[in-house]
Amino acid sequence: MKRITMILGHYGSGKTNIAVNLAAKYRQERDRVAIADLDIVNPYFRTKDSLDLLKEKDIRLIVSEYANSNVDIPALPQDMYAVTDDKGLTCVLDIGGDDRGALVLGRLRPAILEEKDYENLLVINKYRPLTADAESTLDVMREIEAAAGIPFTGIINNSNLGVETTADVVLSSVGYANEVAKKASLPIFMTTVREDVAKQLIGKVEGLFPLTLQKNFIERKIH
């Protein structure tokens, strides 16, 4: 694994959830892992929602103290420079949606490019209306890449329909993901799937990454 893994993508593509899951996996292999929440676009659905879990797994959380608070201002954490300065730290960067979110990388860009130890990953979901086909996904990708100023190194296929995701939903997205990857000349880094659905896809999808840690805010059942 690279020292820095950046997770970027269209708004609502599933970046935060993937970042938390990936950091948990990296923590199994490395002692010092951090997740940096650099979202300056959306005050909701932040890594802070997973605070207890990250503490339990001993993953450092770098996040603005205003995230998930009622202060809806774009703010960056003061310790974000640990990402580039602390070379012993393995970092997963959760970046805000679209090109507006990717702008935040401007400050870190020179150091990341100089160190050359990074993955820059684009999360895609065929079932989001503005990235429903390869062409529109590439448009979004180019906008994000231009704003970030760091070339992408791979694609994460996170195609899903939320609670209605089935094995067929994921399988129907493979052709789309391959087309995006081919047109962008990038490898598919992994295919992320909700854990219960992933079980049905073992051996059918390459690079399957089950999302074991999943937040469901609304349909909470009574215990």
Partner: peptide, 16 residues
């Protein structure tokens, strides 16, 4: 399945 998309409520209002 094929005719569904995953949307935020706000986006659904705009597209509708």
């Amino acid at each position: 399945m094929a005719d569904k998309v995953l949307m935020k409520g706000n986006e659904a209002i705009a597209e509708a």
